[in-house]
Design a protein around this nucleic acid. Structure first.
Length: 698
DNA sequence: AGGAGGCCGC
């Protein structure tokens, strides 16, 4: 023991050692009053000087403080432990429990092994700690060995041990075995029920959570806040508002509204069930909002497709001096990606680096998606390379991003690299890969990949994959083959599939098949305005103006609601929205003038407005309309006057760009010497010097 | 207690 004394800083005295009378039994002093590692070292030194450390009860109190209560003192605890002559089982238990919750839980197992070798008797506390270590390290094999030992040692029916067995099996993905242990218990306390419930939540078995909770209600055995947290999580995922509200009412009736953890779960449940405003009301009523509550609320807005509000709330969070963490940032970046809010997202990335936040797989994946959705695919690749651990989500996000940014070939290269790295693609990965083929006109590769799905990867193609194939064939002009392909599908085609074909018919001016496609679509989705417009535009392209007008008038006759075009532009971190339906009167004279000037200037370069298109739209709107009213033109004009020369203008639009706007933007990029990046409904257009990266293939 | 990728088109 003498060797420890040498490393103790006994020079400075803190308030604790200044206590004039050191108590007879200092156990509670050690456990309750040592608040920092420094306090503990002072007390330890005092105990050494007075030789009180020879008392095992006191030594164990010091061990408990160092191993369990104080942060970063596990090594200190170990050095004390290693100097105990013959540690008793209680000393081992403290150490094993401490190690189980530290960075390397496998050290707990090593100590357990040593305990066994030294023939020190283990008890229920030992087993429950060792199982916790197995649970944390996802060590199923080790856990099973411990389980065998438990059966041999006769601790099988100890409730503590059985509860941790449930947790261990559930954590290691063996939910069936966990349930088996649960079912075999002669008596189950609420901890056993809660362990089983949280096991189901960890494995995403939300239905089972609700079922088990219903059993708790039937048996009338009572439950606690831990139970409610699991059930609320499940209600959120299942959108089971009925049961979620039941628990909400219970919380209010029992006066549990001060329980912040519980309230956060309730807020999250309401948000996930689409009751975002109810969630917000509860959030506002909380008296202390921590980072988790803020994150839940921000993520709620993001999931409800109210990304502008998500970002506003994030700004409020910062004003409230609550530091965001990597979970918050995932929702914030998601919102930036949805809105195309590049500046905000770039700042978030900077903040993540500055605060040295952990680049978790989720956060890294979200960053990749964010950069890709803002048209900065190079940055996506950079982030991808920086990430130390990548999973199938990460690879898929990158592949999808490359595909949407016109880098179809590179997307396929990364797909090969993914396979070389032994990451198994899933169904979504194939959607990314196939859409890469369609955007890059890689017909044969597309066919081969589609055929390999079931054959080589055991993935059953779903309607989405068939949809991609129709897109690949149709865009490339193989309309007949695309039609046959739809015919050969093992399930009935949906409206999306027919709409894909219809869009290809417009691109390749095939009236007959376009009419057929619309017939199919209207049977499935009769109130979808876009399809009539597609057919109308196809007629217009081949000069059948009367037919084009007739089809458009159908929209009005059938009282179908049109989706207004909307473009976003972010300036100095603020997102501005422009709607085509606003008409010019809604915008300031400044924007109106800028638009006029812009259109005049590109006309001098040879831009010819699509008068026919304008006439068609005017017919339908029953009012005077000019070709310059589309929202992306407004947003670009606004960008031109509000940003300094040569700055890149970035627009994101909710619909596909129309041919006229695409053509005009090429001229604008030339006339004003601007790089213009437009993200439309499903891909990117990088305009520069009068050309577009999509090579007019879209 | 809070977090990631998804066919078409308007």
């Amino acid at each position: 023991m003498a060797s420890i004394v040498g490393c103790l800083p006994i020079t400075s005295l803190t308030s604790i050692t200044q206590i004039s009378q050191f108590p007879e039994n200092p156990k509670s002093l050690i456990l309750q009053q040592c608040k920092t590692p420094k306090d503990l070292r002072q007390v330890h030194a005092h105990l050494l000087k007075t030789r009180r450390l020879l008392d095992p009860i006191i030594t164990e109190a010091v061990l408990e403080s160092a191993a369990l209560l104080l942060p970063d003192t596990i090594d200190y605890a170990l050095s004390i432990f290693n100097h105990i002559d013959k540690p008793e089982s209680s000393a081992y238990n403290v150490m094993i429990r401490g190690l189980a919750f530290k960075r390397s839980p496998d050290n707990a197992l090593l100590l357990f092994k040593k305990m066994h070798e030294n023939s020190v008797q283990h008890d229920k506390f030992t087993f429950s700690s060792v199982l916790k270590a197995c649970s944390r390290m996802r060590g199923l094999k080790e856990g099973e060995q411990v389980h065998a030992l438990i059966l041999k040692s006769g601790f099988k029916s100890n409730e503590f041990v059985e509860n941790t067995l449930i947790q261990m099996y559930a954590n290691c993905g063996q939910i069936g075995v966990a349930r088996h242990v649960f079912d075999g218990m002669p008596e189950r306390g609420i901890v056993a029920w809660n362990s089983m419930l949280s096991g189901y939540t960890k494995n995403g078995l939300w239905d089972e959570v609700v079922k088990l909770f219903q059993k708790i209600l039937e048996l009338n055995i009572g439950f606690d806040d831990v139970t409610m947290i699991s059930v609320l999580m499940a209600c959120g995922r299942l959108a089971n508002l009925e049961m979620g509200e039941l628990i909400g009412e219970y919380i209010v009736s029992k006066g549990l509204r001060r329980n912040n953890t519980l309230m956060t779960s309730l807020i999250d449940m309401y948000a996930k069930c689409g009751r975002i405003d109810t969630a917000r009301k509860l959030f506002n009523e909380m008296d202390k909002r921590d980072v988790v509550a803020w994150s839940a609320m921000i993520s709620g807005y993001a999931q409800a497709d109210r990304c502008k509000e998500a970002l506003n709330l994030f700004h409020e969070m910062q004003k409230g001096n609550v530091d965001p963490n990597e979970v918050t940032m995932v929702s914030v970046l998601y919102s930036c990606a949805m809105l195309g809010a590049y500046q905000t997202g770039k700042w978030v990335h900077f903040y993540i680096k500055k605060k040295k936040m952990k680049l978790t797989v989720t956060l890294g994946t979200q960053l990749i998606d964010f950069y890709a959705k803002c048209g900065y695919i190079d940055r996506s690749v950079e982030v991808f390379k920086e990430m130390s651990f990548k999973n199938v989500f990460t690879w898929t996000a990158l592949i999808q991003g490359l595909a949407n940014n016109g880098e179809g070939k590179m997307a396929l290269e990364f797909f090969c690299l993914m396979l070389e790295n032994d990451v198994k693609p899933n169904d979504v990965t194939f959607i990314g890969v196939l859409s890469a083929c369609s955007h890059a006109c890689l017909v044969d590769q597309g066919r081969n990949l589609f055929n390999s799905m079931r054959r080589d990867f055991d993935i059953e193609p779903r309607i989405e994959h068939y949809g991609c194939m129709v897109d690949i064939l149709g865009r490339a002009g193989f309309l007949e083959e695309a039609y046959q392909f739809i015919d050969s599908m093992p399930f009935p085609p949906n409206a999306v599939v027919w709409r894909t074909l219809l869009a290809s018919c417009r691109a390749h001016k095939n009236i007959e098949m376009a009419e057929k496609s619309l017939e199919h679509i209207t049977r499935l989705e009769p109130t979808h305005s876009g399809d009539y417009i597609l057919l109308s535009n196809t007629y217009a392209l081949v000069g059948r103006v009367e037919d084009a007008i007739r089809v458009r008038s159908l929209i009005k006759e059938k009282e179908i609601k049109k989706t207004p075009g909307c473009s976003l532009i972010e300036l100095d971190g603020v997102v501005h929205e422009f709607f085509s339906e606003d008409g010019e009167h809604k915008h300031s004279k400044e924007i109106h003038d800028a638009l006029d000037k812009m259109m005049k200037q590109i006309k001098t370069l040879g831009y010819v407005p699509n008068i026919e298109g304008a006439r068609l739209e005017a017919e339908e709107e029953n009012k005077e309309t000019s070709v310059s009213h589309h929202s992306e033109k407004l947003a670009i004009a606004y960008g031109l006057i509000r940003t300094s020369p040569r700055t890149t203008i970035r627009i994101s639009k909710n619909l596909r760009m129309c041919g006229d706007c695409h053509n005009a933007t090429k001229y604008i990029s030339q006339a004003f010497e601007r790089m213009i990046i437009v993200r439309d409904r499903n891909r990117f257009h990088h305009f520069k010097d009068g050309l577009c990266s999509c090579k007019d293939y879209w």
